[in-house]
Nucleic acid binder design. Structure first.
Length: 201
DNA sequence: GCCTGGATTCCG
DNA sequence: GGAATCCAGGCT
């Protein structure tokens, strides 16, 4: 499958992110319903984007076709998962920040440990663990089943009225743009944390 | 090459 | 509030 709105121009990536709420991502026997996402625009458009200063080896897949996964390793221990958006050559992406595990609960728990159901995929790195996402998923297509991840339409659609918006989590730059979207009141949405500069040593 | 700091999480 | 499996990217 392919979805035309994934290919919307990078300037409209916020709308693309909002659209992804309620969609489901499956991997390794676990299925997650997306409850929280963040939009990142491309080169020169968004100082918070990894692609802000142009392509680099790490961000190559962000410049590729929409519908592919961009995964990256951060803080020496965590993986985060993005879905590449925009037209070819544009580097827009949507960071998948949290979800509700709707299938494969035992597998998710085996990966995440003995935590509350709502915490299984509550936060981008936790969600990556729950889905078993690592470097292996980077650059793979999430639309056609050729990779470990598969995106599918909502089982229960999310109405616009159910969606809240606010500043992105942990991002210092562009704190004024409300490019984080979540399903209002959903218990699996991660708590907001303002960016805190790391203390100098 | 070296150095900085990170789209986070967990623990104290 | 700080430390923790690293390492990308900017700068010298």
């Amino acid at each position: 499958m392919d979805y035309p709105w994934l290919h919307a121009p990078a300037a409209e990536v916020a709308e693309t992110a909002r659209t992804l709420l309620g969609w489901e991502l499956a991997a390794g026997g676990v299925r997650v319903r997306l409850t929280e996402v963040e939009a990142y625009a491309g080169t020169g458009e968004d100082p918070a984007s990894h692609a802000h200063r142009g392509p680099t080896p790490r961000t190559t897949v962000m410049f590729g076709p929409a519908g592919h996964a961009y995964t990256y390793f951060v803080f020496g221990m965590h993986w985060c998962l993005n879905i590449v958006c925009g037209r070819d050559g544009e580097a827009a992406a949507v960071l998948v920040r949290a979800g509700e595990v709707v299938d494969g609960l035992p597998t998710a728990r085996a990966r995440r440990g003995d935590v509350a159901d709502r915490d299984l995929a509550r936060g981008p790195a936790r969600l990556a663990v729950a889905l078993g996402v690592t470097a292996a998923a980077n650059g793979t297509c999430v639309l056609d089943g050729s990779g470990p991840l598969l995106l599918s339409p909502p089982t229960r659609p999310v109405a616009r009225a159910e969606v809240s918006a606010g500043p992105r989590v942990g991002v210092a730059a562009a704190h004024d743009v409300p490019w984080r979207f979540w399903i209002t009141g959903d218990p699996t949405v991660s708590p907001y944390r303002r960016h805190v500069p790391r203390r100098r040593t």
